[in-house]
């Protein structure tokens, strides 16, 4: 019987295991995955909703002085942070789902404000509502999202886009869906007109003012 170095296998296994644990812990500490960061993002969204509520009260008096595109940019940053969290923690994570719901409410609140700015101040703003799904027709939703991202990044001073997850359990969102008669994903509402199914870049560009 030849020698078997059990001690070596065990010690190297232990070191490898430790490195894995350190790796996971370290990444959690330095990333937004740490509870502190998550709370910060959560708090940021909540604060932002509060401040936007306040903002819309103020804006109702001075509505035409509101810079719509500045608001959108700030919201977009939050959206990106949530997207990163979603990528790392998964769609089913409770914190992610919570944040996404807060984010949807924020989007709805902002959408209502921008609509008012557009109507009352006679401003040339293209408002797009995008309803997507990660479960039904998700590849078409992804394609539509890509086209809309492109249109926004190309003309960030002309377009505001609000994206909503169709599968989200949210009464406010259900109301919007029923107002526009949204049934399938993806659907886009471009300046109050509903288009169901994937819409090409050219088609949406034609609808923009």
């Amino acid at each position: 019987m030849r020698k078997i170095s059990w001690d070596k296998y065990f010690s190297v296994f232990l070191i490898t295991f430790l490195i894995f644990v350190i790796g996971i812990l370290l990444s959690q500490t330095i990333s937004s995955k740490s509870s502190k960061e998550i709370l910060k993002t959560q708090k940021q969204v909540k604060n932002y909703i509060l401040s936007l509520n306040l903002q819309s009260d103020i804006a109702s008096e001075y509505i035409c002085r509101v810079n719509v595109f500045d608001l959108t940019k700030e919201k977009l940053n939050l959206g990106q942070q949530i997207e990163i969290l979603e990528k790392n923690l998964g769609k089913e994570n409770e914190i992610v789902r919570d944040l996404k719901q807060d984010y949807s409410l924020l989007s709805i609140r902002q959408w209502l404000l921008v609509k008012q700015v557009r109507e009352k101040c006679n401003r040339n703003i293209n408002i797009i509502l995008f309803f997507y799904s990660n479960t039904n027709n998700s590849s078409e939703s992804e394609s539509q999202g890509y086209v809309l991202d492109y249109l926004y990044e190309k003309e960030p001073e002309d377009i505001v886009i609000y994206a909503f997850d169709m599968d989200e359990d949210n009464p406010a969102l259900d109301t919007i869906k029923s107002i526009y008669g949204i049934e399938v994903a993806p659907s886009v509402v471009v300046n109050e007109r509903l288009f169901s199914g994937f819409q090409s870049k050219g088609r949406i560009e034609m609808l923009l003012t």
């Binding site: 490195i19 894995f20 350190i22 790796g23 996971i24 370290l26 990444s27 959690q28 330095i30 990333s31 937004s32 995955k33 990106q80 997207e83 990163i84 990528k87 790392n88 394609s143 890509y146 086209v147 991202d149 492109y150 990044e153 190309k154 090409s200 870049k201």
Partner: peptide, 30 residues
């Protein structure tokens, strides 16, 4: 192809998301 390969406006956005995902991914350290 959906955006006629006009990818320049999207580079910044994709870059930001990818970089953040790499830093926050636990596999990176390993």
């Amino acid at each position: 192809s959906l955006i006629n390969f006009d990818i320049i406006p999207l580079i910044d956005l994709n870059g930001k998301i990818t970089a953040a995902s790499i830093i926050t991914n636990e596999k990176t350290f390993i």
